[in-house]
Design a protein around this nucleic acid. Sequence first.
DNA 1: TGCATACTTAAGTTTCTGCTTGACAAATAT
DNA 2: ATATTTGTCAAGCAGAAACTTAAGTATGCA
Lengths: 110, 110
Amino acid sequence: MHSQQPAVDRAFHALGDPTRRAIIEKLSHGPVSVSTLAEPLDMTLAAVVQHLQILEESGLVRSEKIGRVRTCQIEPKGFALIEKWITDRRTLWERRFDRLGALLAGPEEK
Amino acid sequence: MHSQQPAVDRAFHALGDPTRRAIIEKLSHGPVSVSTLAEPLDMTLAAVVQHLQILEESGLVRSEKIGRVRTCQIEPKGFALIEKWITDRRTLWERRFDRLGALLAGPEEK
DNA sequence: TGCATACTTAAGTTTCTGCTTGACAAATAT
DNA sequence: ATATTTGTCAAGCAGAAACTTAAGTATGCA
């Protein structure tokens, strides 16, 4: 139950981990190398690389290797997906709320 | 590592699970009882109750028990938190992108 | 009163995640 | 040339998370 899931599923799963959100926070200020990213994160570099793989597969991060250093940066595509998911749902429940409000205000014609 | 975490952490963790997102999707159309919620979800009612507890603690769902039936509904507060987290980060990286664009367009005075 | 419904709670099992270790590869510096 | 830096890969393990089972509670109904 983990191979062929849609992009929005992977994006939500990726953001579910606090370490990965910390990585996103750091990348928000600009592109950073893997080791710089790992430095403040009380864990081995290998663990950070694993988090980065998940972030990259989920479309939240993009990276490029030049020489021996891999530089990571935010990929907005993934964020757009989860924002869309939320706003789509909110549209549904707000529409319901509006209808309810209209009813409570008293049914009007026209 | 799970007791004193901020609300935004709990909200992201809650939405990381596909079953919980399915519950949110159903609730987006309006309030539903626990057993109605559980019906299409290939798992026991007890499991669904556990998911609901997490959703409720994360501020994404609210519920009220009347008689013997508990009715659940969306609580927008939790969603506002995670949308704010995303837009805050995007503000950062878009600002950077704007500055970059300005540089590439050629430095101008004034 | 007796029985079904709609949960609730606790405990145990299984599966998944995050992390470490260790060995390795490639680029760069000395 | 060799040492150092930067990252990659593959096991393996401990704890967390999801789920089940089973027993219990409170409400509503006949």
